[in-house]
Structures are given as C-alpha cells and as structure tokens.
Design a protein around this nucleic acid. Structure first.
Lengths: 260, 260
DNA sequence: CAAATATGTTGCAAAATGTAATTATTATTT
DNA sequence: AAATAATAATTACATTTTGCAACATATTTG
C-alpha cells in the first residue's frame, strides 16, 4: 500500500495497547485492531495467540475477551472445541476395558472422556472433579471415588494438600489427565504449581497415564512444566500437531495418539 | 476488502450485555437488543438460545426473562415438603454468621440449608455432598472443602472410611446434619451403619450440631440409632412434633427449634 | 371470532473469520 | 555489505457467523 503512517508499532507496543483496550472494554476485535495498527489481521491473530498462550486473555471468534475465571467461563469452555473433545473422549474410552480402575483429572476434555466411558461396565472411577463425580455416580454399574480437598472454583475440582495425599491411596489401571498446553519442545505444561504437581503424581502412580489435549493447546507456553511427564504412556489429541512437536514428544517417550 | 464499518460487537460481548440487562430489568426484548447492537433479530435469537441452553435465562415470546427454575420448582413441589425444607433452611441459616466454618451433611434438607446460606459472606463450607459442593463453589466469597471418599449413588455424597477420616481434620463452628427419622422416643435414627457413624462423629466434633428434619420423618423408625446424638445442640423441624416426642427429646438434651 | 400484526422457524447464500503455506520485508549478526 | 533469522504480508481455502426471505405460529386488536 502507499506509505504507511508512523502508527505502525512493534509487537511489544501492540501487545501493551491490546491489553489496555481489553482492560477498558472487556473485548477487542481483530478487525478493529488491524485497522488501528495498520497491520494485517494475521499479525493481530499472532499477537492475540501469543497473549492467550500466556493466559492474559481468552480467544473468541473475531477477537478476544478478558480471561475470566467465572462460572460462565467453565460452561463456555465446555463448548469450545466440543467436537474435538468428544473425539478425544471416544479414543480415550477405547483404551479402557470393563472392570478397570480409571482416574479422571478435572477439566472439560476429561469430562468428555467421562461421557464416553458411560458405555463401559463395572468401572471404578477416581476423580477430583465434582462434575465428573456427579455424572458418573448416576450411572449404573460404576463405583466412584471422589478425592477430597479444597475446591478450586475455576476447575470445580479438589486441589491442595488433601487431594494430593488422597491420590497416593489409590491404585489405578489408567489415568486421563488434562494440561494447560503442549509446548513447542514436546512437553505438557500447566498454569499452576499445585496443578502441575498433582498431575505429575497421577502420571507416576497410574499403570498407564494419558494426557488429553485438544488442538487449541498446541504450542501454548504456560509457565509450569509438569514434572516427570515423560512417565505418561501417551498424549491423546484430536489432530496431528506440528512436526517439531511430534518429534520432540516421541523422543521423550510418550506416544502420540491422534483420535479419528 | 474495503474498510469495514466494524464497530460491531463480538458475540461474548453481546452475551455479557444481555445478561447485564437481564439482571437489571428482569427481561430483555429481542427487538430492543437487535436495535441496540445493530444486528438482525435472528442473531439475537441465536444468542438467547445459546444462553438458554446453558441455563442462564428463560426464553419467552419476544425476548427472555431471568432464569427461574420453574420446572425444578414444580418437581420440588411434587416432592413432599419442599416448602417445609425451605423454611428449615431459613431457620438454619439464621444460626450462621458471616465467616463461620459450616459442615453440611448430604440430603435434600441440608441442600435447602445450603441454598439459604448463599446470603452469608466469607463462609467456609465442608461437605460430603457433591451437589452442595458444586452449588456453593459457584458462589463468590465462599470457600468449599469437599470431603472425599466413595460416592453413595443414592445420596450422591461421600461415605466410607475416607470420608470418616477426613471429618476429623476439620474444626467447624456449626454442623447441619440430616437423618432418617425421629423416633417416638426422641432419638434421631438412620438407615445405614456408616451413615449413623458419620453423623455421630460430626455431632461430636462440631462446636454446635443441629439435625434438620422435616415433619415427614416424625415417628419414623429406621434401623439405626445415631450414637451420642444427644451431643447435638438442637433439632430443627418445620412444625411441632407430637408431644411425646418433644418431651423425650428435651429430656435427652437437644433443644427443639420449630421454623416459622 | 377473525383479521392484523408481531414473532418464531427454516434453509440457504453471503460475509466475516480462522488456518496454513508461501513469499516478502525487516532486523540482527558477522 | 552479505548472510541469517525473525517478523509480517499475501494468498488460497475451510469454517463459522450472520443476514435474508419465505412461510408457520403466536399474540393482539377490533
């Protein structure tokens, strides 16, 4: 285009302005931002993805919103990528046979796994998630153990020292765990220290542990590495991640399972 | 493409505004919303349907109203003594002050207590009930501790040895406990051995313990006496039981509290 | 009660947005 | 200044959202 005005800004400057607008209005629109900075929408998308990977905002169709840990956030998250999560759930359920002891982590993807597991018989379910416990205890032929502890209102699940200790009492055949992101170097990462520690213990404890991650988490860089995550048997995703991630992951040990 | 006149709001922003208006006015009109956001009525209808699917509002002809669990209220009405339970809940809540640590047993009557407690601030709730934990963790200014254990599918609550042990870790100001019946000789009884034991421990542990029993339980004879039930501070009921029961109860110690 | 008006529903087309791969530009390093 | 890496733009195509129009249903009005 003709000579662009000097309004063009470097990435850090854009990021600052984006967050400022977000704080002021609650939402930002990709088109409006691209127009304002006089850059392509692609660039703005990259900016938003970058910020979202750091948990500073939530991506939505057409822009982004404040990252709000509210009740609405949980019910909304359940609908994001619903198809992908259901597919992951079915693939996960294929790894479970009647009569097994299954651990289910909190999260919307693991909730999808729980839904798929309703088909199985005589399962014993261990979980920290209130929703999963409630869902599964209403099914016939399922025993449910709820791990106690302080309830995190964002996850609607037990966290903290009590939950951590309760985990060690169980012997489980297979565990399905969530995660905050799948980093470029093939590691599953998390948002909080306690969450990472909790998942780490489960991965170590279960006969086989699988992380379930939908594709929106690919390349996302959340602050905490999940210790000893290599002990996991595999990572279940809804489609094949970028090649670099695949290679890094397989080098570390866990196999990559892509749901069909 | 030509420059877009894009001051148009993102879907989540519309959703937020719709809910805000709903909270303020009690109703919203499709025409008014379509006009305000400068989008078609279909779009607003889709928004409202989306929100209705998540239980955040009720659709009505021409718009939407605040979500009233009318269906729930109806089925509750069908359930015996819904009004009685609500009254007991209010009376129980009067015994609780902001900032207290409250234990809530499982059961429909204690759920009514939980509902009445939403008014209070800075409570810490300990419970074995999945429904109560889920309800309360969605309220602001409430901390929730879920006691873990095997889930009884009838009560939808934790029972068994884990729950029993978890109880002893807590110091609670006041406990509200359910019961299977109020026997003719003024004792609270229960259906199961483990339930009786659990309630007994809670009654012993809490600063003040109250049994909450609606009038359908008067004179009912269930198999198990709750040990040391006399340690309870009181029994809350929705109307005065037969004179014989009253006398027997007060002779044992707990006071009788009739909700108004 | 019936006509008039407003609202709900459906299928489909258009517009906007998302994604990925490739090319161009800018910055950094040597 | 040339080589290299990082960032952004462009393009092409899939997906989602929105708007439109025709018709069915409900509500209001006389």
């Amino acid at each position: 285009m003709s000579e662009s005005q000097n309004t063009r800004a470097l990435a850090p400057r854009r990021h600052g302005e984006i967050l400022r607008r977000l704080a002021a209005d609650g939402t930002v629109s990709i088109t409006a931002l691209a127009d304002f900075f006089d850059v392509s929408r692609q660039t703005i998308r990259r900016d938003l993805k970058h910020l979202a990977d750091r948990g500073q905002l939530d991506l939505v169709h057409g822009g982004a919103t404040l990252f709000e840990p509210t009740e609405a956030a949980f019910t909304e998250r359940r609908e994001e990528n619903a198809g992908a999560k259901a597919a992951i759930g079915r693939t996960a359920a294929d790894l479970v046979r009647d009569g097994m002891v299954v651990f289910l982590d909190s999260g919307t993807t693991t909730l999808a796994v729980a839904q798929a597991l309703i088909e199985r018989k005589n399962l014993t379910i261990c979980t920290t998630s209130l929703s999963i416990a409630l869902l599964m205890c209403r099914q016939p032929l399922v025993r449910v153990h709820m791990l106690g502890g302080e309830i995190d209102p964002v996850e609607e699940a037990a966290v903290g020292i009590d939950a951590l200790e309760a985990i060690s009492h169980f012997r489980v055949d297979v565990a399905f765990l969530g995660g905050g992101g799948l980093s470029p170097d093939g590691e599953v990462t998390d948002f909080t220290r306690s969450g990472a520690e909790q998942r780490s213990r489960m991965a170590a404890l279960a006969g086989k542990a699988y992380f379930v991650l939908d594709s929106s988490k690919f390349g996302r860089l959340t602050p905490l590495r999940i210790p000893r995550f290599e002990l996991a048997a595999g990572v279940i995703v809804d489609r094949r991640p970028p090649e670099a991630i695949c290679e890094a992951l397989e080098r570390k040990g866990p196999s990559l399972i892509v749901s069909t």
